[in-house]
Computed example of a mutant assay.
Amino acid sequence: MSQGRGSAVFATTMVLCLVVLFHFEVAEAATYVVGGGGGWTFNVDSWPNGKRFKAGDTLVFNYNSAIHNVVAVDKGSYQGCTTPRRAKVYKTGKDQIKLVKGQNFFICNFAGHCQSGMKIAINAV
């Protein structure tokens, strides 16, 4: 019988440890306003420079939705300022996007905007 109680205590302890670890992982996530006070606008492509991003961090894109949007793209589309089929297009003007591990690319696909630096590339560790 005592062996069964020990196993239950061990299992409960392990579950609690996992919950605590998960809590700390979530608690470490940061929120960044893209472009700072100027928001998501032209010439924002250098905004990520010097910042360290982690998977799970949230990017907040603030912009006028009548004249801009945010499109999650791949590297080739980022470099060529093109929108691939089935790309996720955000249009609210207050979009919140969680970063995934690895490369994350975003552009505005309104005519000429990406070419004017309305794009960012972020590597999240």
Rank of each mutant, 00 (worst) to 15 (best):
T41N: 10
P84G: 09
N109K: 07
A66V: 07
T82Y: 06
F106E: 00
G35T: 07
M1F: 12
M1C: 14
V44C: 12
A11T: 13
A72G: 05
K119R: 12
C17M: 12
N64L: 06
F24T: 05
G117K: 00
S116N: 13
S7N: 09
C108A: 01
S2N: 15
A27P: 00
G56N: 09
I120K: 03
L18W: 15
Y78K: 08
R52E: 09
F24V: 08
N64V: 07
V89A: 06
A111K: 10
V15R: 12
Y63W: 06
D74N: 15
Q96V: 08
G102I: 07
F110I: 04
M14A: 13
T31G: 03
K54E: 11
C108G: 07
A27D: 12
V70L: 04
N43H: 14
K101G: 02
F110A: 09
N104H: 03
N69L: 07
A30L: 11
N69S: 07
G93S: 07
K119G: 00
V100I: 13
Q103K: 11
A66H: 06
V19Q: 06
F53R: 03
P48L: 01
K88A: 10
G117S: 02
T31A: 12
T41F: 01
K54D: 13
T12H: 05
K75N: 14
W40P: 00
Q115V: 04
A55R: 03
L99F: 04
V19Y: 09
N109V: 03
K54I: 06
H23Q: 05
T83V: 14
F10K: 08
Q79T: 13
V26Q: 15
N123T: 13
A124T: 02
V15L: 15
K88Y: 04
N64Y: 07
G56Y: 07
Y32P: 03
A87S: 13
K75T: 10
C81G: 07
R85T: 15
T58W: 03
I120Y: 00
N64C: 11
I107Y: 04
G35A: 05
A72R: 08
F110L: 09
H113N: 10
G117N: 04
G6I: 08
C114L: 03
A72F: 02
A121D: 06
F22V: 14
S77R: 05
V71Q: 01
H23P: 01
Y63A: 02
V26G: 01
K91R: 15
V60Y: 08
N104T: 04
W40N: 00
T12M: 12
Q115K: 13
Y63V: 06
H23V: 12
A121W: 00
G76W: 08
M118H: 01
Y32G: 01
L21N: 14
G36R: 02
T83H: 11
Q79Y: 08
A111H: 04
T41S: 11
V34L: 00
N43G: 06
Y90K: 04
L18A: 10
N109G: 04
V34P: 03
F24P: 02
K98A: 11
C81A: 12
A87P: 03
L21R: 10
E28I: 07
E25G: 04
K91N: 15
A121S: 14
L16Q: 11
I122K: 03
G50N: 11
G50L: 08
G36I: 05
Q103V: 05
